[in-house]
């Protein structure tokens, strides 16, 4: 079975599949270490809201998606599959999940405002 041995758009090419696995492990470990370090330090300048959420939280979410990409592409071998197969797996998720996130979080924010502005006290 032929493996594609390049990651980061060809920036790093490994000699064998086993080497690629260790390379991806190192990359995932670095990303996790960055997340943990940011989670412990919580730099003050990243705590200001950007698009309704703390800047730090956006960084966490982006890093999580980066990790998910490398797990799916290299550990689950999606990089080696036919493009049509990859798309039939990834596209439904890419379409449905952001949609679900969008409708539910907008609704939750709306409910928060209703409870906040309403005349009923929730804190008693």
């Amino acid at each position: 079975m032929a493996h594609k041995l390049s990651i980061f758009r060809g920036l790093i090419t490994f000699k064998s599949n086993v080497q690629k696995i260790w390379g991806v492990l190192i990359f995932l470990s670095i990303v996790t270490a960055i997340e943990v370090a940011l989670g412990i330090i919580k730099p003050a300048f990243l705590l200001t809201p950007v698009f309704g959420m703390k800047g730090l939280n956006w960084i966490f979410i982006v890093l999580t998606i980066v990790k998910a990409y490398y797990i799916a592409w290299d550990f689950m071998h999606l990089r080696d599959e036919k493009r049509s197969f990859t798309s039939s797996i990834v596209l439904p998720l890419l379409i449905l999940i952001p949609y679900l996130i969008f409708i539910l979080l907008v609704e939750a924010d709306y409910i928060y405002n209703i409870m906040f502005d309403g005349f009923v006290s929730w804190n008693f």
Binding site: L93, L96, I97, L100, I101, L104, L105, E107, A108, D109, I111, Y112, M115
Partner: peptide
């Protein structure tokens, strides 16, 4: 995703 988004819903509702 359904579970995690439901968690997000509750969290945003009690942000």
């Amino acid at each position: 995703s359904g579970f995690l988004v439901a968690y997000g819903f509750s969290r945003f509702k009690n942000i």
